[in-house]
Nucleic acid binder design. Structure first.
Length: 250
DNA sequence: CGACTATGGGCAG
DNA sequence: TGCCCCTAGTCGT
């Protein structure tokens, strides 16, 4: 499920497989017009937060956002016919990627790309992420820290599962407000470290020793102390937190 | 096999 | 606020 770590994983894999080539684009579903990309070389596949940007020579950037349900299927045999409903197939003679149920799949002119970048906060998985700016933005947020980290204009790429697990690792109550620079920096460093683990593993990893386990996300009890996990609505998503390990600041 | 849920997010209304 | 996106894993019947 597509939070930032999986978007970066897709970008890395597809960049390795497709960049520098002339992939064939098609839309079996018919809801995407591949015409502008016919015969165009793909320069790079870039991830920014939860967004994917496919940069082509002499064509608008292709913007993909998976939303909650979108996914890619990879076919080692590009001759395999796509299932119904494939919005976009990117294929070479060696591999095909089928995009299903994205919330966005569209050409994006340069000014749209600039606007998109400007709308996003630092992405902990990008090499060009500015940690000081990330700290500033989080510390400047006025609401609950648990809402701020889901705000893509504060930090880009964090979703609900990462929110739950990162705030647990930081010992931070999601309802806490106005985190200071030290707290914000600690949380950022956790995000940088753990999202990279998640990208490499292909799943949320919040305990490297037990990568399939979670501390509080979707759990009934805290995996560390056994206390009942508190769950409530925060930032239009269900928040999960341990009342013991993430005590309320007041 | 149907119901339910969910790791996003934009837009209509 | 509700709805959509040709989803998928899980659970109950």
């Amino acid at each position: 499920m597509p939070e930032g770590h999986l978007i970066h994983r897709y970008a890395r894999e597809q960049d390795a497989a497709l960049a520098g080539r002339v992939p064939a684009l098609s839309s079996p579903q018919g809801r995407f017009d591949p015409g502008p990309y016919a015969g165009r070389a793909l320069r790079t596949v870039e991830a920014y937060g939860k967004h994917l940007l496919y940069h082509f020579d002499d064509s608008p950037t292709l913007h993909v956002h998976l939303g909650m349900r979108g996914l890619f299927l990879r076919h080692a045999d590009p001759a395999v016919p796509p299932r119904g409903g494939v919005r976009l197939r990117l294929a070479t003679d060696a591999v095909a990627y089928d995009l299903i149920a994205p919330i966005r799949c569209e050409p994006l002119p340069d000014d749209g790309v600039r606007a998109l970048r400007a709308s996003l906060g630092p992405d902990p998985l990008r090499a060009d992420a500015d940690a000081a700016e990330a700290v500033r933005r989080l510390a400047a947020s006025s609401g609950a820290v648990g809402a701020a980290v889901l705000d893509q204009s504060v930090w880009a790429g964090i979703g609900n599962a990462w929110r739950a697990e990162l705030l647990f690792l930081a010992g931070l109550d999601p309802d806490a407000r106005r985190p200071g620079p030290e707290v914000a920096r600690r949380l950022w460093d956790l995000a940088v470290r753990y999202l990279a683990l998640g990208r490499d593993a292909g799943q949320v990893v919040s305990d490297p020793d037990l990568p399939d386990e979670r501390w509080v996300y979707k759990r009934e009890t805290c995996r560390r102390c056994g206390a009942p996990v508190r769950r409530w609505d925060l930032g239009a998503r269900t928040a999960y937190a341990c009342p013991v390990d993430q005590p309320a600041a007041n």
